[in-house]
Design a protein around this nucleic acid. Structure first.
Length: 124
RNA sequence: CGAGUAGAUCGCCUUAUCGCAACGGCUUAUUUGUCGUUGAGGAAAGUCCGAACACCAUAGUGCAAUCAUAGUGGUUAACAGCCAUCCAUCGAGAGAUGAGGAAAAGUGCAACAGAAAGAAUGUACAGGUCAUGCUGUAGUGAAAUCAGGUAAACUCUAUGUGGUGCAAUGUCAUGUAAACUAGUGAUUGAGCGUGCACGCGCGAUGCUAGAGGGUAGGCAGCUAAAGUUUGCUGGUAACAGUAAACGCAGAUAAAUGAUAGGGAUGCCAACUAGAUUAGUCUUGUUGGUAUACAGAAUUCGGCUUAUAGAUUUACUUUCCCA
RNA sequence: GGCCUCGUAGUUCAACUGGAUAGAAUAUCAGAUUUCGGCUCUGAGGGUUGGAGGUUCGAAUCCUCUCGAGGUCA
């Protein structure tokens, strides 16, 4: 599994996202929180579809939101292969940033590892 | 030198590794792999004006309900923008600001104070008259008789204005309920076509309301445009004309990023060298610190607001020196 | 992305068509009443009318810019 994070691994279907939030379970490592749901994709080569989200309420400026979403995507991209190789079934994931203050890459990276670790333990 | 005024430009650079999006080529055979090119702004922001474009009848007539603009002239596709200029106010000045038409068409408004507030009158003193608020001053007030003030009060004048907005609109796919309840209606026409009336068109498996059911995916619209840069010509200028070169983002839970190093610039501190009577200024080294505001969403022209800091042009002015 | 609506004491609302100390209820504080507390009665404080400019003699009210909150559209 490479460090790539192409378009087909992004969670885009509005229907699936609604289903995810209504039926999914969650794990959290403050200020991060992940909602996950076991599901099947039409494209069988894909095992995970992941989206990221930052509340407009906590971050009013588009620049700040974009910045945090980029950090989340980057840390997910770098860390996913270390934790997901043992997971066989496919999941839809949504990673949320709950905090209200800005952050940097190091702390996000640290929390992301924590989050993915607890997730992989819980699922397997 | 200091203080200040009005503009213009820029607004971090670079290397390595790991990635993202679009397009094109090759490969495979419809899914990959690989190579190449390109990939945020001066405000992309606010959505305050003006357009393009699309649909609503090929958008017609009247009302002007509603609304916008407002010295004069020019500029533009258009504008409430821009340029020039007059006037008024502010500033010592360079300059700044101005919704700056009409109060001699009409209506309204003016608290408190004051005799009196647009209608009639009147206090004190002085002057004047045959006589009288007839005249001046005082007093109240923002305003006291002046063709008064107020039009960002109604209004009048001139000019302009149909509405809705790319979640427009077209098309493909998927799916459901032409079901249920209440009201209303049948050619003597309910209602619809996004202000009202007329007109025109549509119109019965209708229309209005209630409570519900289903889809919220793809493609086109979508980026070459009143284009950008430079030069020349005309014009005080905004701007116009012309020549050459360039080919410049298209995402959609929404690309343009992350990490590590090197450098640049500003500020602070220390040291060093130099200039000067001095305040202070300059050169170099080292360390620390900072590098703003902010992220395209149909596209343009403006306006407004946010913005660390740097560069630069023209000008004003105090003191001193020549 | 587009289009609308609303901002007044801590809270819920008033303030007529521009006129002067922006008012009421509730909450808060103090006093009275009570053995103490509640209820009740009396009094007090609390607002640069979201912010900044302009028009006017005078602005919560009219105009412009700005900040914040909410709604709606396929």
């Amino acid at each position: 599994m490479s460090f790539s994070y192409p378009k087909k691994e992004k969670l885009k279907s509005q229907k699936l996202i609604e289903q995810l939030f209504s039926e999914g379970k969650s794990v959290s490592a403050y200020p991060l929180r992940m909602v996950y749901l076991k599901t099947e994709f039409e494209d069988t080569t894909v095992t995970f579809q992941t989206g990221v989200s930052v509340s407009k309420r906590n971050f009013k400026k588009a620049v700040d939101r974009n910045r945090i979403k980029r950090l989340l995507r980057e840390s997910y991209r770098l860390n996913k292969s270390a934790y997901f190789n043992n997971i066989l079934s496919s999941y839809a994931l949504m990673i949320l940033y709950i905090g209200k203050d800005g952050t940097d890459f190091d702390s996000v990276d640290k929390k992301m590892k924590e989050l993915l670790h607890t997730f992989s333990k819980k699922v397997s």
